Structures are given as C-alpha cells and as structure tokens.
Computed example of a mutant assay.
Amino acid sequence: MLKKPLSAFLFIIIAAIAIPAAGLWLTEKETTQAPVQEEDPTVDVIRSDTQKTESVPLEEYVAGVVAAEMPASFEKEALKAQAVAARTFILTQTLKGMDVTDTVDDQVFKDEEDQKELWGADFETNKAKIEAAAQETEGEVLIYDGEPITAAFFSSGNGQTENAEEYWQSAEPYLISVASPWDAAAPNFEQEVVLTKQEVEEKLGVSLPGSGVVGAVIKKTTGGRIGSIAIDGKTFTGREIRETLGLPSADFQMTVSDADVVITTKGYGHGVGMSQYGANGMAKEGKDYQDIIAHYYPGTVISDAQTFLNR
C-alpha cells in the first residue's frame, strides 16, 4: 500500500522544540538555505515470485501497472486513462488498509526487469512511452462524491459495459452500463472454448443433452451478458458459469457436439468499468484521456491523490 510522506511542517516543529535558546538567533539566510523536502509516496507491493514486499515509488508503480495491464502499442491517451485508473486503484486500497499484490487479484505490476523480458528490443521505446503517460497524469485520481472510486477495468466487452450490481451485486453510481462499440475491433472480441462434455457436467454438477444448445437463458443483464441460466433443473448466474468453466466472459452460448461442449463468447473480462480496447478505440478517434474517463466512469472528477494521503 502507499506510504504517506513525512510532513515537512511536522519536521520543522519538532526541530524547533529541540533547538536551544541560543540557536534561535539564526539569520534569515541560514534558515532558508536548506528547506526540508517531502519524500515521494511509495507503494508496498507483495511480489508473487518471492512473496516479499517491495517498496516502489508511486509513479514508478503506476507505470509498471500500465506496462503490465495494457499493450504498449495502444494510443497514448488510452495509456494515460489506464494510468489514472491504476493510481486510483492503489489509493483506494491504501485507504482501506489492504495489502497489494502484483497479480490479477489486485492489478498486475511489472518492474523494469519484467518489462525487459516482456518487450525485448522495444524496451526503451515502450518504457519511455508508458512513463510519459504516467508523468503527464502525475498524482491524478478519480473521485465521486468526494471519495476515490473503485476504478474497475477489463480487456474488452461485448459492445456494452456492465452495471456493477449485476456482476458483483454491489452498486456504484459511476460503474454503470455504457455503450462500448470499439470493443468489436479487439482480437479477443469473439472466441471459442471447447471443453469435454464430461468436464462441464462434473464442474457444474449437471447432466447435459446428447446434442444441441445447453441451458435456457432466464435473464440477460443490462450489458447483454447472461444474468441467469437454467441447466438441467439448476439455476446459475452468468458469472458462476464463467468462473467455474474459466470462460473469457459472461456473454456465452454453449452447444453440445458429440463428446464436447463448444462455447462461444464475446468480450474478455468482467465487463465492469473501463474497457481497455474501448479506451484505445476512443483515443484513435481523437478523444483524450479525460474524455475516456468521463465515458467509462460517468459522474467522476479528477482530483489529487496527495489530498487524501495528507488526511
């Protein structure tokens, strides 16, 4: 989590108390030569490979998240939107007192060595581009009603984002379903997953038909994903099916074909918040990161992280 920097003001007060009376006769020149500098905030990250906690400067951490969570080939304005979302996420976790890992359980983080391995010969170019995206949004976080938001994001959708309460059963006024037509350009927009019939039956605890479409959709979500579906007399949410079978998204259709179940899906991720491919599509159309943020997190405003760290 973020560590709050020592206040220069507090340091000066303590120092003044400790100074003997004779020391009070310092000249104005002497007292202004060496001002106390505030340290930059840092993030404590539990590294998955070592299980050790590393302290990383905040903006370096943000750049490392952008490097891991979004392709470096994306438009700069999309990278900047991701930087703001990443910074907001870590601030929210800090204010909650939560530990932070470098995995998808929180948000993926790659340090310089990881980035070299990821990008190879393109390391210097990609690093400069992503660091610029972090620096040009330095300190910026998203707030709603005066508090930092849950800045959810995902890879790509089915053309529409999802209401938070329809996936997580927890409503947020800024995590509501909005159109995301740019998702159709994502390489993972439509996918096909093939599982054995036996595996699906065992994981879901059902018996499947010999052929044909599996299940009857009871309800669709606002974002066009499976809200609930009945299979062999049992009712599941789309999220349950997605997570149990390891599907890319909760927008799916299952069909039995011989000994296999063929599952077609649209989008990749939970669908709540900012679509990364949608952000890139908006940037390609000339929208800046503030436009992207306003679209995917409606009603939020940009604020300064330091305001909350100093509380």
Rank of each mutant, 00 (worst) to 15 (best):
residue 180 S to P: 08
residue 29 K to D: 15
residue 32 T to M: 11
residue 235 T to L: 07
residue 236 F to C: 06
residue 17 I to N: 03
residue 128 A to I: 05
residue 273 G to Q: 09
residue 270 H to D: 11
residue 85 A to P: 03
residue 229 I to L: 14
residue 211 S to M: 11
residue 307 T to C: 00
residue 217 V to F: 04
residue 79 L to H: 00
residue 249 S to H: 08
residue 18 A to H: 03
residue 185 A to V: 07
residue 179 A to G: 06
residue 221 T to H: 02
residue 304 D to W: 01
residue 171 A to H: 13
residue 113 E to M: 13
residue 213 V to K: 14
residue 180 S to V: 12
residue 113 E to V: 13
residue 163 N to Q: 05
residue 209 P to K: 06
residue 251 D to H: 10
residue 300 T to E: 08
residue 193 V to Q: 06
residue 146 G to S: 11
residue 50 T to Q: 02
residue 45 V to D: 00
residue 239 R to N: 11
residue 196 T to K: 05
residue 7 S to D: 11
residue 246 G to L: 11
residue 185 A to Q: 14
residue 117 E to K: 13
residue 48 S to A: 13
residue 288 D to N: 15
residue 234 K to G: 10
residue 282 M to V: 12
residue 91 L to Y: 03
residue 65 V to F: 04
residue 105 D to R: 04
residue 51 Q to I: 05
residue 220 K to M: 12
residue 166 E to W: 12
residue 248 P to R: 05
residue 64 G to A: 02
residue 235 T to V: 15
residue 170 S to F: 10
residue 124 E to M: 02
residue 76 K to E: 15
residue 5 P to S: 08
residue 32 T to C: 02
residue 81 A to E: 00
residue 68 A to L: 01
residue 130 I to F: 02
residue 24 L to T: 10
residue 146 G to Q: 11
residue 230 A to P: 01
residue 168 W to P: 10
residue 296 Y to G: 07
residue 231 I to W: 03
residue 30 E to R: 13
residue 277 Y to V: 07
residue 90 I to F: 05
residue 134 A to Y: 00
residue 165 E to C: 09
residue 167 Y to K: 05
residue 36 V to K: 08
residue 210 G to L: 05
residue 271 G to S: 07
residue 12 I to H: 04
residue 13 I to A: 07
residue 80 K to H: 09
residue 98 M to F: 14
residue 54 E to V: 14
residue 200 V to M: 09
residue 162 E to W: 10
residue 170 S to A: 15
residue 87 R to Y: 01
residue 287 K to P: 08
residue 276 Q to C: 08
residue 74 F to V: 09
residue 201 E to I: 15
residue 7 S to P: 10
residue 168 W to N: 08
residue 71 P to S: 02
residue 259 A to W: 05
residue 197 K to D: 06
residue 224 G to R: 10
residue 211 S to G: 01
residue 43 V to K: 00
residue 281 G to W: 04
residue 29 K to Q: 13
residue 163 N to L: 10
residue 176 I to F: 07
residue 80 K to M: 15
residue 265 T to Y: 07
residue 151 A to T: 09
residue 280 N to R: 02
residue 155 S to N: 11
residue 201 E to F: 14
residue 179 A to C: 00
residue 161 T to C: 12
residue 209 P to M: 04
residue 285 E to F: 05
residue 188 N to L: 11
residue 80 K to I: 05
residue 302 I to S: 12
residue 251 D to V: 14
residue 143 I to G: 03
residue 235 T to Y: 09
residue 22 A to F: 14
residue 209 P to F: 06
residue 72 A to Y: 11
residue 136 E to P: 06
residue 151 A to Q: 03
residue 196 T to A: 01
residue 69 E to G: 09
residue 148 P to R: 04
residue 177 S to Q: 04
residue 219 K to T: 15
residue 212 G to V: 04
residue 27 T to V: 12
residue 143 I to L: 07
residue 133 A to P: 02
residue 62 V to W: 00
residue 123 F to D: 02
residue 61 Y to D: 01
residue 264 T to V: 10
residue 117 E to L: 11
residue 3 K to H: 13
residue 25 W to A: 15
residue 187 P to N: 11
residue 2 L to G: 00
residue 85 A to I: 14
residue 42 T to H: 04
residue 117 E to S: 13
residue 8 A to P: 01
residue 128 A to E: 14
residue 274 M to V: 11
residue 31 T to S: 03
residue 291 D to I: 13
residue 269 G to H: 06
residue 113 E to Q: 15
residue 6 L to C: 01
residue 34 A to P: 00
residue 26 L to H: 10
residue 34 A to Y: 15
residue 298 P to E: 04
